[in-house]
Write a protein that binds this DNA or RNA. Structure first.
Lengths: 228, 228
DNA sequence: GCAAAAGTGTTATCAATACACCCATGG
DNA sequence: CCATGGGTGTATTGATAACACTTTTGC
């Protein structure tokens, strides 16, 4: 018997801005006039690596290029997750920095939108489940890999990093201990740049030093942030 | 254009006995008289959940039933990983306890064998890469999930648990600190059973209390074992 | 001078580490 | 009585956690 299973990829792209976490969704037309929200994604080309397929679909459907991309999970246990055919979906987990949060529309991208994670509607197929898994991964990874920096612009304030952690992990963090810990690693550097707000003391911008981080990794360093 | 991609599953099954870590492999005939070692696995049925496909293939090819099974990774970036067709493989990570290490042969299982991990030959396709990734996962998981117990019989000696950790993590562990730590969790229980060796002091058997572990999990407990 | 956010140090508590001797059995 | 592996306690060190006041700016 001939195998008849389609292979799709889907992307869960997270973005962060001003204490809020967003996911990139697209509005799809289904049949006559019903519309559904869904994750960006689609079928994989016959000669296309999975990872490239995600990037292509993201480009086509949302015109977004991501900072971080890794495979999340392959959803293929629910045989009827797509009611039309047997489709398995290789889901990818992605991060963009806040500069990408305004989508530069192109032809296909007109229905792409950033939706706050705690306001996600019912999505097509099993996409709510996929998003759920992605959020778990994000929370977990944030504590043992420095991926928070991929959600922030190149130059960021310490307070931004701090509220990012608070927002995503849904926890209170002691400002002093957090700063001490992060700075003790040695790969977050102060810059000359200074941010002036309309109120409060001006703050220094910081940046993540990738080279230093990679060097530390090779020396056996292991990133970890824990909270009570 | 019609999509023409096959979907396979592969299993990396680990077993442990007497300070040695094993992987379950099968010998495959390829063409005339060439034989290759490969991971057990095969194509997924049209109406078959991925997880069931792995279990079926394992049963058919090796007659082994596993204690622990989770999805590892989907290999589909190398378009030519199988030279005949485009095949993506959803790899699964599995554990069995040592009682399963003697394979009860059935018709198809005659070419299945347990191979020690540091003596794995060249495998078919990209299976060496898959095994590598599985070993990394095993090492990582051992430190933050109590999966070591799935590699041991129901009743085990503390010394067995200890050498299991040493073997897989390739590290020395202080016997006293290890025991203290594990027992402090509260889900590893002493039993009445006693092991008598031909030499040395008899040792108590211990067992893993799944209920207690799950209860602790719900209370927010987080398993973790670290070593210098 | 007040409101708002940035920046900074010390102490207390708990967890991880290092380390060595006695015990029970078989031969 | 000796060889072999099982079983146990304490002191030190380092890491995490708790906690509050001063600084700089705009208005």
């Amino acid at each position: 018997m001939i195998q008849n299973i389609r292979v799709a990829v889907d992307a869960i792209v997270f973005g962060y801005q001003n204490g809020k976490l967003y996911v990139l969704l697209i509005q799809q037309k289904f049949g006559t006039n019903e519309t559904y929200w869904a994750l960006p994604g689609g079928l994989v080309g016959n000669d296309e690596p999975l990872k490239e397929a995600v990037q292509r679909e993201l480009k086509e459907e949302t015109n977004v290029e991501v900072n971080y991309l890794e495979q999340l999970y392959t959803f293929g246990d629910d045989v009827y997750r797509d009611t039309r055919n047997r489709v398995i979906s290789v889901a990818y987990f992605a991060l963009v920095d806040s500069s990408k949060l305004s989508i530069k529309a192109n032809t296909d991208a007109e229905h792409a939108q950033w939706i706050e994670v705690n306001q996600i509607p019912n999505l097509a197929f099993d996409h709510n489940k996929i998003v759920q898994k992605a959020i778990e991964r994000l929370k977990a990874k944030l504590t043992y890999q420095p991926i928070g920096f991929d959600l922030l612009p190149k130059y960021f304030l310490f307070s931004e990093l701090e509220t990012l952690y608070c927002t995503i992990l849904e926890k209170e963090i002691d400002r002093r201990n957090f700063r001490k810990k992060i700075l003790s690693f040695g790969f977050v550097e102060e810059t000359e740049k200074i941010s002036v707000h309309n109120t409060g003391r001006p703050a220094k911008f910081f940046q993540f030093n990738t080279q230093k981080y990679n060097q530390l990794l090779q020396e056996g360093f292991h990133f970890e942030i824990k909270f009570a």
